[in-house]
Structures are given as C-alpha cells and as structure tokens.
Amino acid sequence: MIFLSAAAPIGLLTGFLAWSAAGGASASLDRLAPISAQLMALRPLASATLRQTPRGEGLLAMPIFALTVGPGAVREPAIRVDGLSVSRRRAAALVSIDGAAAQWMSVGESQDGVTLRAVSASKAVFDTELGDKELGLGEQSASSAPAASASDSVEVSPTIVDRIPPGFRSPPPPASAKEQP
C-alpha cells in the first residue's frame, strides 16, 4: 500500500527531472522558433488584405453558386470532344469550345473558362463555372443560349384544362363528419 501511494509522486518527479535534463521549456521553444517566424511573416499579408476590403464586401462580391438565369448569369460554354490521347507521358483531349477550331488540351490545362480534369480511353472530364462535365468521344455538351433577359416573355398555351377525369370518385367522408340536412 505504501508503494502505491508513493508511485504517482515518484513518477511525476522522475518525469520532471528527465524533462529538465533534456532542456526543459527552452528545448521546445527552440524547435518552434522557425515555425513562429514563418507565421509572423504571413500575418501582415492576411491582415492587410482584410483591412483593404470594407466590412462584408468580400461576402457580396463572390457568389457561392453561379447564376444560371437572369441578369449577370454565367453562360456555360458548348464543349465537343473530337479526340482523346492517353499515353505514359501525357493525357490530352482534342476539344472544341463554343464552336471554335478544335485544339489539344493536356490534363490541368485551362482554356476559355474550361479546365480539363481527367482523360480516359473513352471519355474526358471538364471543370466549368457551372460544375464538372463528363463527355465521351464525339459527344458535345448542351450548347447554352445567352441568358434570358427580363424583357423576354414566355407564352403558355392553355391546352391543359383543370377538370375532374371521367370515372373519378371522391373518397367517402370520414366517420366523424356530421351529416348535413
């Protein structure tokens, strides 16, 4: 019983002596000095950027989602895959963007807002402002028309009339409903 009550203080004392012999607090501070210097070098850049923009302007300047309709809408480019090349050294796709002449794009290369992300033997994956597009050889993404303006009107033809279909029977009233005379 005596040994158990003395074990914790002896262990703490032994650990403290070993820590002190290894250099104590100064040893850990010496290892952190280069990292602290790098962090201090980064701090002025981040704080200067925050000071230059008025409060809240950064949140309103960049939308989280791209607009697809209305004023300021993002137009998605029409992409057509005319060829694919996969070798040990290079993966590329022969791509036509918005009907322009087809050009070879390597993986990671960007052109007219379209980035080639991946190429396989039968398909290519592109990153656009509206998300990823996966197209096979010879396929074309849906060509996008210019964004519709507020002055454009859409006519709806009244071909569908709201009426009860023939043979429809409404459900019976609930048992708790009162009968009307």
Score class of each variant (00 low, 15 high):
39 L>R: 07
28 S>G: 07
164 I>V: 14
169 R>M: 12
106 S>P: 01
37 A>L: 06
64 I>R: 15
158 P>R: 10
136 G>Y: 02
146 P>Q: 10
23 G>D: 05
75 R>Q: 13
126 F>Y: 05
150 A>G: 04
1 M>L: 08
160 I>G: 07
121 A>F: 02
42 L>P: 00
55 R>M: 07
104 W>R: 09
134 E>T: 14
133 K>C: 02
56 G>D: 13
22 A>S: 15
169 R>E: 15
134 E>N: 12
26 S>K: 11
59 L>P: 01
29 L>N: 12
38 Q>K: 10
52 Q>G: 09
55 R>H: 04
85 S>V: 01
77 P>R: 03
41 A>Y: 00
103 Q>R: 12
165 P>T: 00
154 V>D: 07
155 E>A: 08
132 D>A: 13
74 V>Y: 07
123 K>T: 10
6 A>G: 04
10 I>W: 14
65 F>T: 11
150 A>E: 10
81 V>M: 02
91 A>C: 04
142 A>M: 14
142 A>L: 14
140 Q>S: 13
34 P>K: 09
119 V>K: 10
84 L>A: 13
80 R>Q: 15
46 A>K: 13
37 A>G: 13
101 A>F: 01
30 D>A: 15
70 G>L: 06
53 T>W: 09
148 A>N: 07
34 P>Y: 01
38 Q>S: 09
56 G>W: 00
118 A>F: 02
129 E>M: 10
140 Q>H: 02
12 L>P: 02
167 G>I: 03
44 P>F: 02
156 V>N: 11
105 M>K: 04
107 V>T: 13
181 P>F: 00
